[in-house]
Nucleic acid binder design. Structure first.
Length: 706
DNA sequence: GAGTTTGAAACT
DNA sequence: CAGTTTCAAACTC
């Protein structure tokens, strides 16, 4: 029995999963089996589990898209539970015959979806459900053709608790659906399907923890058992995004030996060896944690922890909805991480340099897909060249061997970056700020992804950011990063905007800067110090206000005394929000009816209009000048009809001057008065100009003769 | 660009 | 928790 330690669930900071500030305006509430709110207490018998699991969606992924040596299988066990509940899954049995048929060229994810009996199968791709005896399964097959297939048990239309016997009694007919808008269905016969009970609960709408247990089926059984844990953050995220939950990949069972034929592991086999998965930290708190890597797969409502090896590399841990990218720096201690070229299901060896992210890792960065778009995007990684997390065969350590109790309390407010293992050198964690990783990877990411055919919408990374200091997501994304000018803080205190915003200093004007990778230890300590002082230090200051108040308000409020809260000294004013009851400002003029504020706003608006007008005028002028040159250039180059000024060359000017000097000398010779001399010179200048103009219509070069 | 003002962060 | 100091950004000239 594998036990998932409670530390696994708490290791990842809740803060990074805090979706409260995530702008989800564009996301209509999406229904999904896990959080559609359709969960109804079932009449079925309680789930035979060790804990209080109320619903058990299970996902089985079989990845055979990789070459034979990399063929993998995956099992994901998703457990719907409340925020504190830890669960044990019941064994799920499924003969492998049917799956094998599909797995020949596809990765298959079988997902037993806990859902209400009334749930239909048209909610969204990937969430097709079936209700054989109150259970629902989704099988997703990912083929090289980019086609996802949902293998579906026939809908029995049974009421809760009424169809379980039928499901067991009758051979299960799976419908093969394609994800991504396809509606064609192919009947596929699959052997006796899983029949474990799943109790539907209203708690489905609550937090969902998905525990995925992955184990390589390599020749050597010494490989660590790997856990993949996904967990939703809160109900808010679930409501809108759980439509993607069922595509979470799961257990990775791979046969890496070229000699060993791909081994098909049935669910029954899988779970018989692991019988049941005790997830309850309450029951198995002492079980040592397995090294895992955390990667978010399904959106902000999930944390996915993948097992890791200890090979030297950098693991990016990205959490959609968070403005932080988390990167794990680990050092290779084994030679097992042999590169498996030719398989896009493979993690090649990675460099210890955190700056370098190889293709495999980039592809692992599915969570880069923003929360807002996950619902639409999720199927893509599964359908595009099989770049699925479950296919990776190289697992890496992500969790420290020790629980790091001194850090863990702060993980709930994980800052822009931290070393989770202080003093352990490159074996520790380094949590990189999102912007930094974005900067690091932007070119590489696009390049690698494009070369691999992986769809990478360019706006994805920025969309994943949280609103930054009151700015909207798009504002924060488009907002040019302001270089800091820190001198004394080493950019390791909140005085430094870069540090406070979770960014590394880059292109700043700071001196003695420690806010970079080269000083990750110091930086980690500084982060810890900040969090010790204020656990909320790295949370956005501008968050949602209480009900009935403005949507945006300063979390702490300002303390302005002299600025009247109408200058950018005031954090409220700077964030373009009104001061609120939380502010302790004196002489505040930053309120709705403030005439000063209105005047200021009008002035600001007027100034903005002027700037826009000036910009438009400049643009128009530039356009006209450009157009003028465009129109005159052909005349200049053609030789015919050349503009007169084009003949005023240096030689012509010199000749003109000689003519004028000659005229002056003549006037002097004949002893003309000065006025007459000037007139003679001017007349000569006029004649020169006329000659130049007259030459404009001629093709040959003008000659000026005095 | 230098100097001043300001308020948050850090410190006591 | 309040008072003081430090700091860097905002602002003024």
């Amino acid at each position: 029995m594998d036990v998932v330690s409670p530390e696994l669930n708490i290791l990842l900071p809740d803060e990074i999963m805090d979706t409260e500030a995530i702008v989800m305006d564009d996301d209509p509430p999406a229904e999904s089996p896990a959080a559609s709110g359709q969960s109804q207490p079932s009449d079925d018998a309680p789930i035979p589990m060790e804990t209080d699991v109320l619903a058990v969606p299970e996902i089985v992924s079989l990845c055979s898209d990789a070459p034979p040596t990399q063929r993998t299988q995956a099992l994901t066990t998703s457990i719907t539970t409340d925020s504190t509940l830890c669960s044990t899954t019941s064994a799920t049995h499924l003969t492998s015959g049917g799956l094998q048929k599909l797995s020949a060229n596809h990765q298959i994810i079988l997902n037993k979806v806990a859902s209400s009996p009334g749930a239909d199968t048209t909610r969204s791709p990937g969430t097709t459900t079936i209700t054989p005896g109150g259970q629902k399964f989704m099988v997703t097959a990912i083929g090289k053709s980019g086609q996802s297939i949902v293998l579906q048990l026939p809908h029995t239309g049974s009421k809760p608790g009424s169809g379980q016997g039928e499901a067991k009694a009758n051979p299960q007919h799976f419908k093969v659906l394609t994800i991504g808008g396809r509606t064609d269905m192919k009947p596929v016969m699959v052997g006796q399907a899983v029949s474990s009970a799943s109790q539907i609960s209203t708690l489905q709408a609550q937090q969902l923890k998905t525990v995925q247990i992955a184990k390589k089926t390599q020749v050597s059984s010494a490989g660590p058992i790997k856990f993949i844990i996904t967990k939703p953050v809160n109900n808010k995220g679930l409501t809108a995004q759980t439509s993607v939950s069922n595509v979470i990949t799961g257990r990775v069972l791979s046969t890496s030996s070229p000699v060993t034929p791909p081994r098909t592991i049935t669910l029954s086999e899988t779970l018989s060896s692991n019988s049941k998965i005790a997830i309850s930290p309450l029951k198995s708190p002492s079980k040592p944690m397995k090294p895992v890597q955390t990667v978010t797969v399904g959106g902000p409502q999930f944390k996915t922890i993948f097992p890791l090896s200890t090979s030297s590399n950098v693991q990016q841990i990205q959490v959609p909805g968070s403005r932080f990218h988390y990167v794990r720096l680990v050092t290779a201690t084994t030679g097992s991480s042999t590169g498996q070229a030719g398989s896009h299901c493979t993690n090649s060896s990675m460099t210890a340099k955190p700056m370098v992210v190889n293709t495999a890792q980039v592809r692992m960065s599915v969570p880069i897909i923003p929360a807002q778009t996950m619902k639409q995007v999720v199927p893509k990684p599964l359908t595009s060249s099989g770049q699925v997390l479950t296919t990776q065969t190289q697992q890496r350590l992500i969790m420290p061997a020790t629980p790091l109790p001194q850090i863990q309390p702060n993980l709930t407010n994980l800052p822009p970056g931290t070393m989770l293992a202080p003093g352990s050198g490159n074996m520790g964690y380094t949590v990189l700020p999102a912007h930094y990783v974005t900067q690091l990877q932007q070119s590489a990411y696009v390049t690698l992804a494009s070369s691999s055919g992986f769809p990478t919408p360019t706006g994805i990374q920025t969309q994943a950011r949280l609103p930054l200091n009151g700015l909207s997501t798009s504002d924060a994304a488009s907002r040019p990063r302001k270089p800091c000018n820190c001198n004394k803080s080493q950019c390791l205190k909140l005085y430094c905007d870069c540090f406070a915003n979770g960014e590394f200093c880059q292109s700043c004007n700071c001196t003695n800067c420690f806010n970079n990778l080269e000083h990750e230890t110091e930086r980690a300590k500084a982060i810890k110090a900040c969090l010790d002082r204020n656990p909320e230090a790295f949370k956005p200051k501008i968050g949602k206000g209480k009900e009935g108040e403005s949507d945006r308000r300063h979390s702490k409020g300002c303390n302005c005394k002299r600025s009247g809260c109408l200058k950018n000294y005031c954090e409220c004013y700077e964030a373009k929000i009104m001061c609120s009851s939380t502010c302790k400002c004196v002489g505040c003029k930053n309120f709705e009816e403030s005439p000063e504020r209105k005047t200021l706003m009008h002035l600001a608006d007027a100034a903005e209009v002027r700037v826009q007008q000036q910009t438009a005028a400049k643009t128009k002028l530039s356009s006209q000048i450009s157009d003028l040159f465009t129109r005159t250039t052909p005349a200049i180059t053609s030789g015919g009809g050349r503009m007169p000024f084009t003949f005023v060359t240096k030689e012509v000017a010199e000749a003109t001057c000689e003519c004028l000097l000659e005229q002056a000398e003549q006037a002097e010779l004949i002893q003309q008065p000065q006025a007459t001399a000037e007139r003679m010179i001017l007349e000569e200048f006029g004649r020169c100009l006329m000659r130049i103009i007259g030459s404009a219509g001629k093709t040959d070069c003008p000659s000026i003769n005095c």
